[in-house]
Design a binder for these strands. Structure first.
Length: 604
RNA sequence: GGGGAUUUAGCUCAGGGGAUAGAGCAACUGCCUUCUAAGCAGUGGGUCGGGGGUUCGAUUCCCUCAAUCCCCGCCA
């Protein structure tokens, strides 16, 4: 179950881009301008440790490219913010070829207008120097992160719920690579537990090999659903006497745990069938894993966890024989249940075994769990237990909201799920129809390729563009929208640029001083923020920051595109410079989309 | 009962101690003989859930209440 397809990164980390150089330079000038008596250290004593001279981007309706609010300084300088800003605007020297063009006091803010020529020159130097590595950093150099993502349950359909972990996790993985980390993607398959006892029992009673061979996931799901339906009719589930079917299921899982050959054979067949289906989906989504260690991989590693917990005295044995770790002194009122009264292991036991294994094998600096927020308590418990055991590795639960249906919560056992392969199929058909109408000129093969890329992009972007923590109600129209704030809009924007570049057919040269229009400079400024955007997205485990950034630059490009002619620009030098700008824009679009795991197309 | 998350335009969502709170969808008005209309420009639409507090300044931070969702020992 181990394959290695994803660990090699060709990305060369780089650092210190135009915008950072400019900000640093201006910050130093402000500090000097505040006078000999002013130091950051002194200011922090009054205003708190976090104080710094921070340059921010003013809202669009305000004049200026960067701004510095002078309000906090009023306290230490004993002057009004207006006067401070005015004095800074008057005294900071404007160098001939410096970053600053001019300064202006506006309502207590010092607003900075950049020297476009200088700034343009620097950013185009960055584009040229770094090429496809523009935006990358070396923040994570020498550090390793293990990402636990996707993790679908074997023998159950890959639902629209599983997609969230997959796309969010994959995007975080790509972002961390861009930040210079060594990234390990681990698909923690749900291939163990009592549910398999249920399935093995159901298969024994109602299973039909032929049907399973034809439509594996569906048939296995039917068996699982049937088990639950029939169980409800037989005896109490919660009384003293356990449901006889449940007893049978437990018996079979116990056999599986004890490596019974027949149970193991059927189980691994189920796993195999599932993996085949999952891999089709992963191929279409272009998501790769370095490892597919399922939960079963850790089934023989739980004894050690139990020993460790008992020896360290963290865990206590209850009267009924179960083993728990009380956490109330650690601020978690619910104890972690480690071992059932019958001695069987639980989810948490395997989770702890997994964390310990990962730490020993990969020696990561960080482990990221991309798992739904309904498991918040579970991870908080596990992380706390690890801490109590003396492990120092940072673990982060990157949680996301539940996907539900209009009819209510999704439930595999009730058969209430949306199969993800159906979503992809519908999306593909819809995109293909649009293409047939809009681009009858394109060859059939290309239309198919475009429909694939566009529909998968739309589906992924829909999940990635909003903050993870929000619950989502599955909605076909939302999921398969190709208009407005969607991936196809971004892909389309990219394709239009490619079209212009194809038509241009000249060696592109850049004359940065010629790009003086507001629409040009707005776009350039936004492109300059790409590196810091990646960092922010990574530090917050937040792909939607990249997605929002994409929409922002695409809108800026649209404004530019609507007003500024490129191929018909007056003068060849200006045309070439504008070509250089839109090419840089297209590169950033392509790179940003790739951080979300979304492809671009040269035509659509 | 305890814990966590969410609440911003009719709908779906960005934003987040600072300047006049932004997008998309839906509605309405224009724009395809001019770099691809999966597009662009424009109009209308908001007591940022209610109430307190901290602050020079709160939609943003803190407290509280309400609504919705999730979790709370033998599923994963």
């Amino acid at each position: 179950m181990e394959k290695n397809t994803n660990s090699q990164s060709t990305i060369q980390p780089v650092e210190n881009y135009a915008i950072e150089r400019a900000k640093q330079n201006i910050r130093d000038k402000i500090i000097t301008g505040l006078g000999k008596d002013f130091t950051i250290e002194k200011a922090r004593k009054v205003l708190g440790e976090n104080f710094d001279i921070e340059l921010r981007i003013p809202p669009p309706n305000i004049e200026g490219h960067l701004s510095f609010p002078c309000f906090p300084l009023a306290k230490i300088l004993r002057k009004s913010p207006m006067i401070i800003a005015k004095e800074l605007a008057d005294t900071i020297p404007i160098e001939k070829d410096g970053y600053i063009d001019h300064l202006k006091e506006v309502k207590g803010f010092l607003n900075i207008f950049l020297n476009r020529e200088r700034f343009n020159r620097e950013i185009f130097m960055d584009f040229e120097k770094y090429g496809d590595d523009y935006g990358n950093s070396m923040e994570g150099k020498g550090k390793t992160v293990v990402i636990d993502l996707s993790s679908p349950n074997v023998a159950k359909p890959f639902s629209v719920g599983n997609v969230r972990s997959t796309t969010i996790g994959d995007s975080i993985s790509r972002i961390y690579k861009a930040l210079g980390w060594n990234v390990i993607n681990d698909n923690h398959l749900g291939d163990w537990g009592t549910q398999f006892g249920k399935l093995l029992y159901a298969y024994e009673v109602w299973g039909d090999n032929e049907k399973i061979g034809k439509d594996p996931i569906n048939e296995l799901l039917k068996l699982y659903v049937r088990f639950h339906n029939e169980m409800e009719g037989k005896g109490s589930d919660d009384g003293e006497s356990e449901n006889p079917m449940l007893t049978e299921a437990r018996k079979r899982f116990k056999l599986l745990e004890d490596k019974d050959p027949e149970m193991t054979r059927i189980w691994s067949w189920f796993v195999d069938l599932s993996m085949r289906e999952f891999n089709k989906i992963y191929d279409r989504l272009d998501v790769k894993f370095d490892y597919n260690f399922g939960e079963s991989f850790y089934s023989d590693k739980t004894d050690e966890v139990i020993d460790l917990l008992e020896e360290s005295g963290i865990a206590t044995r209850e009267e009924d024989g179960s083993l728990v770790v009380p956490l109330d002194k650690e601020g978690i009122s619910t104890p972690a249940l480690i071992q059932k009264k019958d001695g069987a292991t639980l989810y948490a036991t395997r989770e702890l075994a997994t964390i310990i294994y990962r730490i020993r094998r990969f020696q990561p600096d960080l482990i990221i769990y991309v798992v739904g927020s309904e498991q918040k308590l579970h991870f908080n418990q596990c992380f706390k237990v690890m801490e109590m055991l003396g492990f120092k590795t940072r673990c982060a639960h990157v949680d996301f909201g539940l996907v539900s249906l209009k009819e209510g919560k999704m439930s595999a056992r009730k058969g209430r799920v949306v199969f993800f392969d159906r979503v992809m199929a519908e999306g593909f058909q819809k995109a293909l129809e649009i293409l047939k109408e809009k681009r009858p000129d394109l060859p059939e093969e290309e239309k198919i390729e475009i429909a694939r890329v566009v529909s998968v992009g739309a589906i992924k972007f829909n999940d990635l563009a909003q903050n993870r923590v929000k619950n989502v109600v599955f909605d076909w129209d939302n999921m398969l929208s190709f208009e407005g704030d969607t991936a196809p809009y971004l892909q389309y924007s990219y394709a239009r640029v490619q079209s212009i570049l194809r038509k241009a057919d000249v060696e592109i040269e850049i004359y940065p001083e010629l790009l003086k229009e507001n629409e040009e400079f707005d776009l350039i400024r936004k492109l300059s923020r790409f590196p810091e955007t990646i960092k922010e997205a990574g530090n917050n485990f937040a792909p939607h920051i990249i997605a929002q950034y994409l929409l922002e630059i695409a809108r800026a490009f649209s404004v530019f595109y609507g007003k500024i002619p490129v191929l018909k620009a007056p003068g060849k030098k200006l045309m070439m410079s504008r070509l250089a700008l839109i090419r840089a824009y297209a590169d950033v679009i392509k790179r940003s989309l790739s951080l979300l795991g979304i492809d671009t197309l040269s035509r659509m």
